[in-house]
Amino acid sequence: MAEEFEPRIVAFLCKWCSSAGSDLAGVSRMEYPPNVVPIQVMCSGSVSPLYIFSAFNKGADGVLVSGCHPGDCHYIKGNYYARRRLNLVKQLLEYIGLEPERFQMSWISAAEGTKYTQVIKDFVKELKPLGPQSKLRRTP
């Protein structure tokens, strides 16, 4: 039998919350799938749609953007901008025929290590049946 498909997820994690949340999961020795390539960003609001398209273009099977819960942004309102902007990105990607599961967004605080592992577990589980993402991927 062929080896089971292991999706590669690019996760843009806010330095002040979700990235710290992932660290908490790590230092607490929580188990979760090793499919994530984390990229620390200063704020979910700093994630340009271009980063997301580009991650898919360079071979990501799924992209996650994770920031602080509404009201908790270190820069007061960055996550509100992200929420609006990335909703449009999500709608657009689905509209052109990318599977809706491939782009996800989450709110994870620095204290929510467990939530981080759950988000990743769910994401991996949803991506597995879809197989590799080839639609936006650069032609080798």
């Binding site: 509404p70 449009l88 967004m105 709110w107």
Partner: peptide, 16 residues
């Protein structure tokens, strides 16, 4: 501008 503004109750049902 649309993306340099927001409302507190913008939809977020797609966010986990």
């Amino acid at each position: 501008a649309l993306i340099s503004s927001f409302r507190d109750d913008d939809p977020q049902d797609f966010i986990r």
